[in-house]
Design a protein around this nucleic acid. Sequence first.
DNA 1: ACCCAGGATGTAA
DNA 2: TTACATCATGGG
Length: 300
Amino acid sequence: MERGTIPASGLVGGIDLYRTLESGQSYLWSRSDGDMYTGEPNPKAWYRTVVDGVPVAVRQPDGAPDGDLEWRSTTDAVPYLRRLLRLEDDLAAIAADAPEDPLLREAYAAHDGMRLVEDPPFATTISFICSAQMRVGRIHDMVSTLARTYGDTHELGDATVHAFPSPDRLAPASEAELREHRLGYRAPYVQRTAEMVATGEAHPAEARALEYEAARSHLTQFVGVGEKVADCILLFSLGFDQAVPLDTWIRTAIATYYPDCDRGNYAETSEAIRDRLGGRYAGYAQTYLFHHLRTGAVND
DNA sequence: ACCCAGGATGTAA
DNA sequence: TTACATCATGGG
């Protein structure tokens, strides 16, 4: 086993690992204490995942966001962590350049060190298909079940880590089987989308080559992917930092704080709130707002 | 019992 | 195009 440290001093704006991995962006990690997405941070606990067939563990034992990252893997995990946790982002500049909006400034100040993630496109697509009308804790349960049931297993020290299944592994799962795993009405969506990718009919990563709104539209060809889920895929796996998913929390925020941005339909409302949240990094801003509102940290 | 959660789909107007 | 019923599940 290889091990190493990534000094926080090398990360512009630092990182808060707990906020980054338990803010409803990624459902592909598990926590060694079993308390992922249950509300309480545990700096001593390891976060584990499998990326490109490589098991990786990371934690931030000395607090955040100025604490170093400690990692374990079967190989050098630094390149993987740089990508998954977007360690190259100049978080200080992104926060400083955010619009002068009271709620947004409050969110950035309250959750210092939270970074966007960049997860694999297929796993992200299935994760957010599962996200429909679900709380983040249950989304994590569903995705964990898929990994445990259909994914490859990897050993890392004493721990067994389950990879999220490839399209080939997931496509044969029947709708009935997925319903037994408590996916509910999302079961046929997951099965059909996995099949679309497995057969080569389409792959979500293809959207990377398109302009933003064309990319969002392109992703809606997958069964169970509407405009909101498409925005999540673009933001959390394809590097479209301007994407602003209009979920129930952000819609409430629009009604309360930005009522002039409500244009009655998704595309135009999305464009209006995107401009209000700063354009290029509007998705970063949205993720802070989402986390701020969802965790009930708003000062009113 | 009722409401809600990172919504999408099919159908009708 | 927009409006609306329908779809599962678990927690508060």
